[in-house]
Design a protein around this nucleic acid. Structure first.
Lengths: 152, 152
DNA sequence: ACTGAAAGCACTTCTCC
DNA sequence: GGAGAAGTGCTTTCAGT
């Protein structure tokens, strides 16, 4: 992390909120001309601090209102089995995130589905196909809130 | 969810991967002219299916390599207490996500910190200040993978 | 590191199909 | 619902400090 100054942090803050802001607008907010802002943004992209720019969709509007965390235990823990499991599970459209974790279980999945019926279908038709899973436990999300970006 | 056709889904897929793609490039990939692509993107924005456009930062490069899920139990469950708790906890820079959940605990936090020392500091100096928390349990993330966007 | 200006290019609108 | 063209405005570069 090559030291970010006040200006860089402000740029990152604004781009995390809305990455379609123009260089011109950024420059105005920072009381600078286009050039230094443009150069700083490009540098932040080249250094990899800014990984990418993505459109965020509304889960409700695309039938993904239901969020469930599923903790799972698996039989084998060799590198290739875990890797294969990760790849296959992430290929399922319902699975959004995959974590190898400490604690009583070995891994945790975050899934997003339309409703309870879709959840049931996921468990019965998809998750149960994985031979390596010995047990699992579902935690339903009643409400959620997340931060827009990182505080720098 | 006003039915998305094949073109809309392709547009959303591409914008979820890189929202800085130009209308011109989008149009070329879809074998269309600028106009229909432009109109479709604007409609997706107006309808709220596209919520916003954000820059994604690399956690490693901004000292947020360590991810921990903390399940917590709280004493009171009235609407205002829970709401206050959510607001205060999300105001902490370490806390990225907050969930009210079913199961053995009442809520779950996803926190991202630099290292174990920063985690210890968070627990001892910040989380322990919340009077309503009766108990909590930390699950450390050993490795993680997440999908770029939703499969439509 | 920043300013200011200029060229290039994409966005946005409009007309027509 | 889409094509093509034109005007506008932002991006990107470059000379200068």
């Amino acid at each position: 992390m090559e030291s970010l100054d006040r200006t860089d942090r402000k740029i990152l803050e604004l781009l995390q909120q809305d990455c379609r802001i123009t260089i011109k607008e950024l420059a105005e907010k920072l009381h600078l001309s286009n050039t230094p802002v443009y150069e700083r943004v490009k540098k932040l992209e080249r250094s990899g601090i800014i990984k990418n720019y993505v459109a965020v969709l509304d889960p409700e509007k695309i039938d993904r209102s239901m969020v469930v965390f599923i903790s799972v235990s698996i039989t084998k823990h060799t590198r290739d089995v875990v890797q294969k499991f990760e790849t296959e599970v992430l290929a399922l459209p319902e699975v959004m995130e995959f974590y190898i974790t400490s604690g009583n279980f070995d891994a945790m999945l975050k899934i997003m589905v339309k409703d309870m019926h879709a959840f049931q279908h996921f468990i019965q038709e998809k998750l149960s196909k994985f031979e390596y899973i010995t047990r699992f436990n579902s935690t339903f999300v009643i409400s959620s809130a997340e931060k827009i970006g990182y505080d720098l």
